[in-house]
Amino acid sequence: MMFTPAADLFAPEPTSTAWPAPAAAMPAPPAASVVAAPSRDSAALETVLRHPGVWRRKSPAVAAVDVLPSGHAALDALLPGGGWPRGALCELLSEHDGLGECSLLLPTLAALTRARRRVVLVAPPYIPYAPALAAAGVDLQHVVQIDAAHADTHWTAEQCLRSGCCGAVLHWLAHGDYRELRRLQLAAESSGTPGFVFRPLAAASQASPSALRLRITSAADGTRFELIKCRGRVGGTTQLRLRA
């Protein structure tokens, strides 16, 4: 397991409380429901049209920065170019498991797989739960999970990023030094593939070559996403609440 679970979960509880009854109203499901997944065909078409790799060279009028829409309007507004940078490494630094840190990517993964682009999960810490992915509109046919021994994960992620045949590479990394991340960033750049690296929040203090760093923490009113580094928008943190 790569993330340390929250301390209060497995330790004795200081005060015991009465059993709470089921909530009367159903909350919105986390993350994925912020933006309703568009219908399959239009999404696929849209993604292809927005694919800068296809059009950029011929039509300089289209976006200068090559991005993948995140599927969350609020987040897109925050991100330079209006989406996840393509051909770059994004770091997602999460305080705990279970804050919606992975689900954040579901709309992107759904759009990519529906456009028949392969999404690779390198060494995930738990079972990526197929029913949840499918419910979010991810076409499982284009999802590949790669198990690798700890020593091989880095190599694997780099190979995938470099190959240019993956729509996105998700990578869970407990420890990683600057040099390794740098290699990943270069691999992503060279092939134009977006790479997402999930790391514990503790890593936020370390220097990083990633193009984008997102801090994910729990707040009283949901999960807080903070952009702590972004190429082309130096300094300044921006907050975003994606689930209530």
């Binding site: 497995f10 509880e13 709470p20 009854a21 738990y126």
Partner: peptide, 21 residues
């Protein structure tokens, strides 16, 4: 359904403080 499923379910020491659904 959750994004992650645990390979082996883990016993919780306490009843969770808040039930959503």
């Amino acid at each position: 359904r959750p994004f992650w499923l645990l390979q082996r379910p883990l016993a919780l020491h306490h009843a969770p403080p808040r039930i959503l659904t």
